[in-house]
Structure formats: structure tokens, C-alpha cells
Design a binder for these strands. Structure first.
Length: 641
DNA sequence: TGGGGTCAG
DNA sequence: ACTTCTGACCCCA
């Protein structure tokens, strides 16, 4: 008897696509140099092939192969270096933004460089409602809610690409004709195919896609047919316990055939399920294998480890959320891990595809070392890592300052002055879209070679963190200078907190990271997908008379700072430029603008609470600036160049 | 918030 | 050889 209550109910209302670019690193090179496409191409990191194109695989190469071996197997292989990740990261971001363009709800989530999840539920529902059941073969998929001509024709009676199980459309056609899910998955498969085609046409990338109702299932099912293909996990997803369906499918009632989800997921090795990693799969394996009384064939003495499949675990006597909770729970482990894992084992994953994110939640740089045990070497490495980190921050957290959108009213002093600046000086300035508040230093001490062997626990990295000084946001200073300052003032003290002993340590790794991002406020957080209506509205407003008002000024700092900042004496520690010069320039060239800023100060304004301070940072140097002084502060930067 | 663990690509 | 260089999320105090 099946214990119904132990299996969480399926919720298959969503349609989720999982996109995986084929042999990603290799493809990036192929696009830069199309001549490589027809050749066996391998990407090298250290002494290994990290990935290779399918031509190379056809000739016997594979991932994580030694270079020496690869050359033996395929002497004419073209090997390129893949240690510098910048090009891969850039291409990945570009593809991500392109793919976002297909979504309506902005639910698009990147996993690593080469995978993207899309929640296309809304698009599918919309098109499902549009289907004409009298002529499904000549359906039209609408990609836009506004323009019914944007889209593509398709045959809504068949799945695009592969399906799992193979030929399942014919097998249970009678049941599925009435299945809502069946229709929605068909729609999903055609949308997936369209996106794949567009990725090739517009970006030159081939990809592999999985189509199902959750991140878990779409990711897993996509693996069935690679490369340049797609697979849809077909219904029924539910166990057939409806009496009528029960009789119709009496021949399928063998337990493994109750639903295609179970059929599909049961065959996977337990460690292949996303979310069940090395540690957890080991714990589960040990438990399942260490009770061989139930299963004669499984012997642990032989030393050969039997593979444990999801099916083995799912059907293990007494297995359920409680048992998994006992197995996997404990201090440090995630709350409700047993229930979550039991869900995964039953093909249930309710986790959301997250909204598109413009900024990462952390940026870190690390390097590993054979031996690193002198303070001088450490300083040198800190400087190198810091340099890379600050450059990365300028790439990932900086954005072209385009016409100052939405968030602040178009006639606010900031926007006004900003327009003046970019118009008259035609300065293509940059702004920070986020400010990390914290910097962290991590090291991995070399394992104490021959200790009393208590436990070689995963006890790997140790770290210290502290506030990130705001001078690092100063774009007018040379990186080298900022690095030197950051190392001396922040990282060296942090290092000594981490390693108080003068000698005796030996590091195998150093990592420097910035975290705790505070996003600079923009209206929608995406910075993309301009609203046409809003643009028109704005144009009108720009023509209106200036309004003098500003409600974003924190009360506590205005009195002490107002004079200082308006006279631009560089009260922010990060400002290095000559104050008098900037000041002079402002007064001579920007009198009106300055007056404008002055007027603003004298207005009777309302104050916002402390919370608003985060949005009153200078985009350029990161200094906290009262809103009323921001306009003048911007001028200062512009003229400082 | 600081420090650490697990998982993933 | 579970490597390397990340990044996300979760837990505990």
C-alpha cells in the first residue's frame, strides 16, 4: 500500500525550460573563429581538457582528460587556453540578456556560465487560451501580448523535438488528449525550439533544452538528447489513482510505471539529482547499502560500490521524509532537508526560477599556491588579487550612465544637472549600479601534513571580513593607487587577524571577495525593457519648467555637510582631485547649475528617514552625499577629468 | 553581521 | 585527481 500522505502533492502548473549551451567554452572560441567549427577543438586549463567540441568528442576526447592523453588519441586536435574567464563571462551575460528578451515575467536564472532556466508559464497560458481546437495543426504562437503578428506558426498536435518516454504521445494518446498539461508541454516544446533557433540565428550558439514543470525535471530531462536538441518530459506526471484512469491503464500499474516522472527519475543515480551533492548522496548510499539484509545482491564486502539509484532509495523499506531527516539532518544542515530531499526523490521541486538579476551578490577572486609562507609573498599576492578584483568590480558593477531613468523625477535637480552635464560636456560617464559594503579575506592553510590524524574534516577555508572602504569606488584614481591603499589599510590588518602567528603558516589558497551588495535604486531593478509609454511621458515632462523640490535629503547630515560639499572640498576620503580647481571650474562654467543646487537647499523640504541614505551615494566615487548636494558633486567629478 | 558548510558548473 | 575558480544559499551564534 502506498503511503499517500508522505508524498507531497505535485504542482505542475508551471512550464520551465532549461537551456544548456553545447560545449560552452569551445563554442565561445568557435564563434570568435568560425574556422574552428569543423575541427576537433579542446579548451585547456592547467594540464587538462576542461571541455571540447563535439567533433573532438567524436574522435574520442572527453572532458577532464589529460592534455598528453588527448594528443595521443587525437594528434590533430586544436587546443586553446581557457584560463582567462573574461570572454566566457562576457558571452554568458550577453546570451542571458538576449534570452531574457523572450520572457514576459523576467523569471530567468543563470546557473554557471552555460545554463539558463526560464519560467515561461505566463506565455504558455496565454497561447493555450488562443488555441483553436478545430485547427491545431495550423496554430500560431504569439510571442508578444501587444502585437499578435509577432510569433511563429506551429503544429500544436505534436511535440517539437524529442519526448520522454519515446513515442509516449502515441502510447497514451487517448488519455492525454484531455490533459491540460499535455497541451502546455507541447506549447513549451515549440517555444523552446523557437528560442533555440533564434540563439543560433542571432547569436550563433547551439544549445540543448529540457522542457517540464520544474527546474529539477527540465534540467534532468534535457540531458537525454545532446547536443543541439531538446527533450520534453511527457505526461502523465500524476500517479493514476482515479478509478476510471486506473482501469484504462491497468496494464501499466506496475509500480515503476505509475507516472512518467517516477519512471524517469527512478533511473538516476542518487548523486545525479541536483541538490543532492557529494555529502548527502554518501550518507544516503551508506544507509541504503549498509542494510543488505533486504537485498541479497548488494554486498559491501566486495569493495565494489553498487550504484544506488533514486528508485532504490525511494523504495527502500521505511524510506520517507522522516528517515531522510534523520539521515541528513543535524546541526548545520538545512531545515526540513528530509522533506525537501524526499520531494526531489519523488520528482517534486517547487523552487522558483528567480527574477533576472543585474548584479551578482558577491564578487570574489582567488588563486591557489603550491607554497606561500612569507609575508612579502602574501603582500604581493594580495596586490595582484586586489587589482583583479577592482577591475572586476568596474566591469560587473559599473554601467553607462544613460539618461538617468525613472527612479528620480525627470525634473529633479540631479536629473537636470545630469542632463546639462551630458549635453554640454557630452561625457559618457559611468555609474555604480551596486556598492558592496563588505570585503572578505579567505585563506586555506595547507593541511598540517602529519597531525595526530584526528579528523581530516572539510575544515578548509577560514575567513575574516570587514567594511569595504568607499574610496575603492573612486573612478578617477588609478587602480594601482586604490589597490595599495586597500591592501595596506584593510587587507593586511585582516590578514593578521586571520594569521596572528608570525611564522609557521603555509597557505594553499587566498581569496578576496566583496559582498553585501547595496543596489543603487532604479525603478524596476532590471534596467532593461524600456517602457515606451514612459519614454513619451518623459519627453513631455522634460519640456516643462523646472520644479524645485527634493525629498531625498537625510536630515542628520545636511547641516554639517552642506557647506563642505557644495564647495566641493573633497570631504569624501576617496576624492583626490584638486578641490580648488574643481570648485573654480564649477563656479565659472556652471553658475546656473550651482545656483540651482543652492536653491534646492533653501527650499522647505521633507526628510526621509535613514533608509534612503543608501540611494544617496555618488555613483562615481561611492561617497555618501546628501541628495541636495549630489548635483554639485556630480559636476565636481565631471570637471575633474 | 561574522564565520562556516554544502552544492553546482 | 574530486583538480580549479568561482557563486549562491543556508545555518549558527
Amino acid at each position: 500500500m502506498l503511503c499517500e500522505g508522505m508524498i507531497p502533492r505535485r504542482r505542475d502548473g508551471r512550464i520551465i525550460l532549461h537551456i544548456d549551451y553545447d560545449a560552452y567554452f569551445a563554442q565561445v572560441y568557435e564563434i570568435e573563429n568560425p574556422a574552428l567549427r569543423s575541427l576537433p577543438l579542446a579548451v585547456q586549463q592547467k594540464q587538462i581538457i576542461v571541455t571540447c567540441n563535439y567533433e573532438a568528442r567524436r574522435r574520442g576526447l572527453h572532458k577532464l582528460q589529460l592534455i598528453s592523453e588527448a594528443r595521443k588519441v587525437c594528434p590533430d586536435v586544436v587546443i586553446v587556453l581557457g584560463e582567462q574567464l573574461d570572454r566566457f563571462r562576457d558571452a554568458s551575460k550577453d546570451l542571458y540578456k538576449y534570452i531574457e528578451g523572450f520572457t514576459w515575467n523576467k523569471k530567468v536564472e543563470r546557473l554557471g556560465f552555460d545554463e539558463v532556466f526560464l519560467d515561461v508559464t505566463d506565455i504558455i497560458s496565454y497561447n493555450q487560451a488562443l488555441l483553436n481546437s478545430n485547427d491545431l495543426r495550423h496554430a500560431f504562437f504569439q510571442l508578444s501580448r501587444n502585437d499578435p503578428t509577432v510569433g511563429f506558426p506551429f503544429d500544436a498536435t505534436t511535440v517539437a523535438g524529442h519526448e520522454y518516454p519515446e513515442g509516449s504521445a502515441q502510447l497514451s494518446a487517448s488519455e492525454m488528449e484531455h490533459s491540460e498539461l499535455y497541451t502546455r508541454l507541447i506549447l513549451g516544446s515549440h517555444l523552446a525550439q523557437h528560442i533555440r533557433h533564434k540563439l543560433v540565428e542571432e547569436k550563433g550558439y547551439t544549445s540543448t533544452v529540457g522542457i517540464s514543470t520544474s527546474k529539477l525535471l527540465s534540467k534532468l530531462v534535457g540531458n537525454l538528447h545532446k547536443p543541439r536538441s531538446q527533450t520534453t518530459l511527457m505526461p502523465p506526471y500524476e500517479r493514476l489513482d482515479d478509478p476510471q484512469a486506473f482501469r484504462d491503464h491497468i496494464s501499466m500499474l506496475d509500480e515503476s510505471c505509475t507516472s512518467n516522472v517516477t519512471l524517469f527519475i527512478d533511473s538516476h543515480d542518487i548523486g545525479k539529482i541536483p541538490g543532492i551533492g557529494f555529502k548527502m548522496s554518501q550518507k544516503i548510499r551508506n544507509h541504503v547499502l549498509s542494510r543488505p539484509a533486504q537485498i541479497e545482491e548488494v554486498l559491501i564486502y566486495g569493495g565494489t560500490r553498487e550504484s544506488v539509484t533514486v528508485g532504490d532509495v525511494r523504495r527502500y523499506p521505511g524510506m520517507g521524509p522522516e528517515m531522510l531527516e534523520k539521515l541528513l539532518g543535524g546541526p548545520g544542515s538545512e531545515r526540513g532537508i528530509g522533506y525537501k530531499t524526499w520531494g526531489l526523490i519523488n520528482g517534486i521541486d517547487d523552487s522558483e526560477v528567480s527574477m533576472i538579476r543585474k548584479v551578482p551578490s558577491q564578487i570574489s577572486i582567488e588563486d591557489s599556491y603550491i607554497r606561500l609562507d612569507t609575508i612579502a609573498e602574501v603582500y604581493k599576492e594580495l596586490r595582484m588579487l586586489c587589482t583583479t578584483l577592482l577591475k572586476r568590480m568596474r566591469v560587473d558593477l559599473l554601467e553607462d550612465e544613460e539618461e538617468e531613468e525613472d527612479f528620480q523625477s525627470p525634473d529633479s535637480p540631479q536629473a537636470m544637472v545630469s542632463r546639462l552635464v551630458s549635453h554640454v560636456a557630452s561625457t559618457a560617464s559611468k555609474r555604480w549600479i551596486a556598492h558592496p559594503k563588505t570585503i572578505r579575506l579567505t585563506t586555506r592553510p595547507r593541511p598540517p601534513l602529519k597531525l595526530s590524524s584526528t579528523r581530516s574534516r572539510t575544515f578548509n577555508r577560514i575567513s575574516r571580513s570587514g567594511p569595504l572602504p568607499s574610496f575603492v569606488f573612486n573612478l578617477h584614481e588609478e587602480i594601482d593607487v586604490l589597490v595599495e591603499k586597500l591592501v595596506q589599510e584593510t587587507l593586511v590588518p585582516m590578514f593578521h587577524r586571520l594569521h596572528p602567528e608570525k611564522l609557521g603558516w603555509n597557505l594553499s589558497l587566498i581569496n578576496i571577495g566583496v559582498t553585501n551588495m547595496v543596489e543603487t535604486a532604479t525603478s524596476d531593478g532590471t534596467g532593461r525593457g524600456r517602457d515606451i509609454g514612459r519614454m513619451f511621458k518623459r519627453q513631455g515632462e522634460v519640456l516643462k519648467e523646472w520644479k524645485v523640490e527634493d525629498k531625498d535629503i537625510p536630515p542628520d547630515i545636511i547641516n554639517e555637510r552642506r557647506v563642505e560639499i557644495v564647495t566641493s572640498d573633497g570631504s569624501s576620503p576617496g576624492l583626490q582631485a584638486e578641490p580648488s580647481t574643481a570648485n573654480e571650474a564649477m563656479e565659472t562654467n556652471w553658475e546656473d547649475a550651482l545656483n540651482f543646487a543652492q536653491i534646492t537647499m533653501d527650499e522647505d523640504v521633507e526628510w526621509e528617514d535613514e533608509e534612503s541614505q543608501g540611494s544617496n551615494r555618488c555613483h562615481t566615487c561611492g561617497a555618501g552625499i546628501p541628495a541636495f548636494a549630489m548635483a554639485a558633486h556630480r559636476l565636481y567629478h565631471t570637471l575633474g577629468d
